[in-house]
Amino acid sequence: MSEPILTATGLTIGFPVKRGIIFQREVARVQAVDGVDLTLHQGETLAIVGESGCGKTTLARGLVRLRDIDAGSITFMGEDITRQRGRPLSDFRRQVTMIFQDPIASLDPRMRIGQSMQEPLDIHSIGMPAERKRKVQEAMERVGLNPEHYNRFPHEFSGGQRQRIGIARAIILEPRVIVCDEPVSALDVSVQAQIVNLLEDLQRDLGLSYIVIAHDLDVVRRLADRVQVMYLGRVVEQGEGEQVYNHPRHPYSKALLSARPIADPKLARSRERIVLQGDVPSPIKPPSGCRFHPRCPVAQASCSAHDPRLEVAADGHGWACAYPLAP
């Protein structure tokens, strides 16, 4: 495996809980992301998967320094950028960009798409104005948009095309890493495939590394080299795609895999289903011991007392469970 390009160690990101009649004081912190480690290698795709409330979006924003980091560190190409400001932070943001879930909400409706895509170049003062337009049109071509549509407005494009605009905006700074927050979940099924293929092509041609955030293991199956499954702010299982998909060890990963409907009626009728009961608990008061134990189909008595750590084996497959499933 090549050099790690982006690593995070013990990353903890919290939200304040405030109380008080006139003067609000912080009485507690909700750990949305609680001690997460991750390593992204050059040219690979790391998927972070979990349901709403698991902290994956907070993690994504923390990784691009859109949220303050409470504890832990982020290292990009050997440099600690956890608390960088000014110039080094802006350089970092040039090399680590983001694609958002909702291509409609993330484009200014009154701005021509050419300008929207050019904005990153303006902010980082890259190239002469004439050159910037050329760069934008190159990027448009690369993502499969007609460069002649430079002067159009976002509403003139379909959902898939808008996501292409978002991707063009993310690659225009020639970044090393793109953090993709649910890149296809707002799109129609037939369009999802186009965007997945486009992301793969760009990765190959531009040598990009991706961190893909998704709520659903199936969606990232294609893209991901490695997967980390999150539950209530923690990583509960991680490993190569093949390991997690075919031999999940943590009951939550297994449940997540079996929860997705199977597009095969015969298999759907015959397969064994794990349907988790209840909802994800509030991160304000996480359950004692293993955070998953109240919903876990194989929980033992000790699970409510003992909080399992994420143990990673030599082959990279790791899980945080005292009673892991058989491989």
Binding site: S190, D218, A263
Partner: peptide
Amino acid sequence: ASLPGRNRAGERLHQI
């Protein structure tokens, strides 16, 4: 074909 769960690894996703 474009269902993400059912394609084989290494194969390009069929797209409309």
